[in-house]
Nucleic acid binder design. Structure first.
Lengths: 342, 342
DNA sequence: CTGAAAGCGCTTACAG
DNA sequence: CTGAAAGCGCTTACAG
């Protein structure tokens, strides 16, 4: 390539990277010949020589869930436009995660890492820091990471206040489970909002109205079944994610009850199918969070500097058909005559 | 690292890669010291010297749809276990695709490519072949690619026969659109089954009972609205994907009709939410197709040889609540008294 | 079983 | 604006 163009490999390198220190004519000629010869810079050689990999790793606990899919699309879009490769790691279970952090396949392999709504131990976070590359986190705020998130407390509060405003007092809660981690505060934050709104409305907190659903459809269904078999039948349910709400919806229907006639239901995310299922929910901008975290990492790589302050994106309550005012004559008595408490 | 262990870099390289030509004691010592020093082989140097990248590119038209998410999870699982990196490219529109094939960022960068249910022009397929690496394709059969797919004709036939068996004769069809391409025969195959089953049941084919939905919820909704505003109201609908069926369901409900009372509905995929929405559908094993294509590519890289014959995985009709026998007294007359034809 | 040496194909000061 | 040369950190025949 170099001798074909009558220049040194150094000049070819500069021309193809678009460095300003190349004469326009020379550059054009090199670019033309490169095209003719179908010549491309060999990435591994370039990486070895420059020390830059032009690669960002995306580490997610799931890729086949709506929220994560949206996030990944948002990230990929920016990275591709900027010429970065996206390396994907799907770490669904604790075993995968442990193995991953043990082997740390990212070492010397990436210029940055984006962690998506995933519980990280202090030690795992430290391992990532040890990589010495910019780190991004979606969904929480952790020292040393550039963070993009929503205000989970505010979002969940808007959902809960909506139910309270409709007159509901027996409000159940399907929360997300999983290990408590400083990098994944979502379940805790949304749960806090649940309790705070109950408190501000003067409603007592009853643990028997809470069940864990681990953010899946199946988990939401199980949680709702448990709640329906309890002594108090709730008149409303707040689910921490739309997918859990979908499962809850199914459990409610299968038990012969209807939404919203018998039970009002609110989710969280504004999943693509929330509209189809008429689900009232809290919308969050997901692809935008992906765009942002990718943009931040790229900026950090290009211009250096410290991680910017955490960006908190707004949420918005979307009212649909799954919620309505509590009935004047609620079917408070269920399960063989025991009376719903208050 | 090498001098710390008192051996040459060549021996370190061999020991860390687990080559058999290293004394067990030497190997153990090297592995121990590497661990102590937190030493990892630098991938770009290794790649440059060996010519192998240990990387597979996954090229998909969408990553945020259920089908593709499942596929990617299946692929990632195998690749991670085998120590391969997964490079993700999301090429949603024709412009992205053209740019991608123009720049061909994969050149010298990957050891293999998996293309997921994506239309490819002859030229684009040739560009990929020009990479000189093993190529995989999910969803169709193309020369030069290792292929994993289902029998779309058989799957769609089972859906259509189910409707015919229930006595339906006014069966609408929401098909997938998109460019016709030899690498993406799904829409064509499923459409063929639609017509063939009509034919074998002695039902005339009526173009006005077909609408295009491009495999999205929104597209399915639009298609169904169009169908509902036609002269003949169908008593049943076959949608080429569950996501389009979900959209159709919404359109049907919004028009004041009910599934299955007024209209029976069948989808395709067995989407995670098909169960929640009580949708009768054709199940296909998606994650398995991902596992398989990844495994085939890895095998090809490790052992060489020609692409194996196309693997065709089975589908299965899953009957749920969205389909039922056609009504004895169908509401055949709609839209101001015009009579449904036959 | 192990080492010396060449070479993989770039990038980057340095010099002009 | 361009080139010569060193060097990035491995792997791989080759030799022993």
């Amino acid at each position: 390539m170099a001798n074909r163009a009558g220049v040194s490999t150094a000049t070819v390198s500069r021309a193809l990277r678009g460095l300003p220190s190349v004469a326009e004519g020379t550059r054009l000629r090199i670019v033309r010949i490169a095209r003719e010869l179908d010549y491309t810079i060999t990435p591994s050689a370039s990486r070895l020589a420059s020390g830059r990999t032009q690669t960002i790793a995306v580490v997610a606990p799931y890729v086949n869930r709506w929220f994560f899919g949206q996030l990944i699309v948002g990230i990929e879009e920016v990275l591709r436009a900027k010429g970065f490769d996206l390396l994907l790691y799907n770490l669904a279970d604790a075993v995968s995660r442990d193995r991953f952090f043990e082997a740390m396949p990212l070492r010397r392999r990436v210029d940055g890492v984006a962690v998506l709504s995933m519980p990280l131990s202090e030690e795992q976070a430290a391992t990532l820091s040890g990589l010495g590359v910019p780190l991004g986190l979606v969904g929480a705020e952790v020292d040393g990471f550039a963070c993009v998130r929503i205000d989970d407390v505010a979002g969940a509060t808007s959902a809960m206040r909506h139910l309270v405003m409709l007159g509901h007092r027996d409000i159940a809660h399907i929360c997300g489970g999983g290990p408590v981690a400083h990098s994944f505060t979502t379940p805790r934050d949304r749960s806090r909002a649940y309790r705070e709104v109950l408190h501000e409305a003067g409603i007592g907190y009853r643990p028997e109205l809470e069940a864990v659903g681990d953010y899946t459809v199946a988990g939401g269904e199980r949680a709702m079944s448990t709640l329906l078999s309890g002594a108090t039948r709730p008149t409303a349910v707040f689910a921490q994610s739309d997918e859990m709400a979908f499962g809850a919806l199914q459990a409610i229907r299968r038990s012969g009850l209807r939404v919203p006639d018998d039970i009002s239901l609110v989710g969280f995310d504004n999943h693509e199918l929330a509209d189809v299922l008429e689900l009232t929910t809290v919308e969050q901008p997901v692809a935008e969070q992906g765009n942002l975290i990718a943009q931040i990492l790229v900026d950090l790589l290009e211009s250096g500097g410290e991680p910017p302050p955490t960006m908190t994106l707004p949420t918005r309550l979307v009212v649909r058909g799954s919620t309505r005012p509590v009935q004047a004559t609620p079917h408070q008595t269920v399960n063989g005559g025991r009376t719903g408490s208050d």
